[in-house]
């Protein structure tokens, strides 16, 4: 694959906060329509990569290219889904979902019309007028994902989106996301420390070291899609999982 076909390419990105060297030398590629995960230990500066991509902070070193050209400071390429759902408790579900469209300058009415047909697909039909606290954790995450994809940016940045959910809900959500991803042809970069989640969802996985973070391994996941939870028990998946765990634990 040549550099031009990459949706996103990070080359030698590094970042220090004061004396804290968070990112050492990170190089990552994402092709259009690809689902890529960044797997690393807690506190390895995974979220810093997203901060840099969304303009929250600047990289000290390295180059970032998007569709072949250098990424501008205030970029409108990414739709972010933060770790906690970050739903606004004072906004109804429909108004939380349309937040990004409102920021883009759409009227509340137009934004609502645009998002309305998606509630069914996201399993949120009938909950449009509820407040976030009235929803379960899994539903809140679906609202957060709806808020993310409705922005129609070229790439999704998912920062440990299911980290706060209980194990069963998390698995259900991963399955649901895998199916949605298959239908919509999204390009996604996922941050996680959950090995199974990374295997289940990704085409490729980058393993980061502890601070200062570097890419230590790049692993393909050649499992067929659509995937089912049972596929995680296949020899192929088990092998990849073991490989990832070894890479993470540094044995």
């Amino acid at each position: 694959m040549s550099a031009e076909t990459k949706r996103l390419a990070l080359r030698g990105v590094g970042k220090q906060f004061g004396d804290l060297n968070v990112l050492g030398d990170v190089s990552i590629d994402v092709a259009p329509g690809e689902f890529v995960s960044i797997l690393g230990p807690s506190g390895a500066g995974k979220s810093t990569i997203f901060q840099i991509l969304t303009g929250g902070t600047k990289a000290d070193t390295g180059v970032i290219a998007f569709d072949g050209s250098e990424l501008a400071d205030a970029s409108d390429k990414f739709a972010l889904m933060p770790q906690k759902d970050a739903l606004m408790p004072w906004r109804r579900i429909v108004d939380n979902a349309t937040l990004g469209l409102e920021v883009q300058g759409l009227s509340r009415k137009t934004a609502r019309e645009k998002v309305a047909p998606l509630f069914e697909e996201f399993g949120l039909a009938g909950f449009e007028q509820h407040y976030p606290h009235q929803l379960s954790g899994g539903m809140r995450q679906r609202v957060a994902l709806l808020r993310t994809v409705i922005q129609q940016r070229q790439m999704l940045l998912l920062d440990e989106p299911f980290g706060a959910l209980d194990a069963l809900t998390r698995t259900a959500m991963q399955q649901w996301l895998e199916r949605m991803w298959g239908q919509h042809n999204w390009t996604a970069l996922l941050i996680t420390h959950d090995v199974r989640e990374a295997v289940f969802l990704s085409d490729r996985i980058y393993v980061l070291s502890a601070r200062p973070a570097r890419v230590t391994h790049e692993i393909r996941v050649p499992l067929a899609r659509p995937r089912r939870v049972a596929d995680l028990a296949s020899p192929e998946a088990t092998r990849i999982e073991a490989e990832l765990l070894e890479a993470l634990l540094g044995t």
Partner: peptide, 29 residues
């Protein structure tokens, strides 16, 4: 105001005024 909420708004392209109106002001209610 939740820091993730502000980050999210900035990633959506919101400036300081919009972040204030959409997140900081309602958080203060």
């Amino acid at each position: 105001t939740d820091k993730d909420m502000e980050w999210l708004l900035r990633s959506m392209g919101a400036g300081r005024r919009k972040v204030f109106l959409l997140a900081r002001l309602p958080s203060a209610i």
